[in-house]
């Protein structure tokens, strides 16, 4: 009796694992870190790869909106780090992925500060990068099945 129950208990997880792999979307195949890297490089792209169109669009709009508003407020994009605070800002800016490199290439966020809200703009750009990292990790969690 007890042996039969043990057999059933052992067989149940195996059958659940089988049905889970069968119900996984096609995007779940391939390189497991692709949504993480894509989500970091292009805001929302990690969710787009997983066919989460609405979530990806909202994330992309939020992160892009915060980054653009930061630039519009004459916030600065960190180009190098002279002290610890600059280093933290640079790491935050790098979180925006391609937006950081495009803005550096175009010379955006490098102007002299002329308005009082420029400090806010700098924080907007840093926070946009941090939010993008959170979104990329969320895409990775969706890909690995840690989040549904």
């Amino acid at each position: 009796m007890a042996t039969q129950e043990n057999k059933n208990a052992a067989a149940e997880p195996a059958s659940q694992a089988g049905s889970k792999s069968a119900s996984q979307p096609p995007s779940a195949e391939g390189f497991v870190y692709l949504p993480l890297i894509a989500g970091w490089a292009i805001p929302g792209a990690g969710h787009f790869l997983l066919r989460k169109w609405v979530r990806g669009s909202l994330l992309a709009a939020s992160i892009l909106g915060m980054f653009v508003l930061g630039l519009r407020m004459q916030g600065s994009v960190h180009a190098d780090a002279h002290n610890l605070l600059d280093l933290l800002g640079l790491i935050g800016d790098l979180g925006t992925g391609i937006l950081y490199f495009v803005s550096r290439f175009l010379g955006l966020g490098a102007a002299q500060v002329q308005v009082t809200t420029a400090d806010w703009g700098t924080r907007f750009i840093v926070v946009a990068g941090l939010l993008n990292v959170i979104a990329a990790v969320d895409a990775h969690n969706l890909r690995t099945g840690r989040k549904s």
Binding site: I63, G65, M66, M73, T117, F124, A128, I134, A135, D138
Partner: peptide, 24 residues
């Protein structure tokens, strides 16, 4: 842009990302 609209935009964008990423 003045400070209060900046606060509203900051809260809107951050809340959107938090809501999507922290709940299922």
């Amino acid at each position: 842009m003045t400070y209060f609209p900046a606060v509203l935009f900051f809260a809107l964008f951050a809340s959107t990302v938090f809501g999507i990423t922290q709940r299922e």
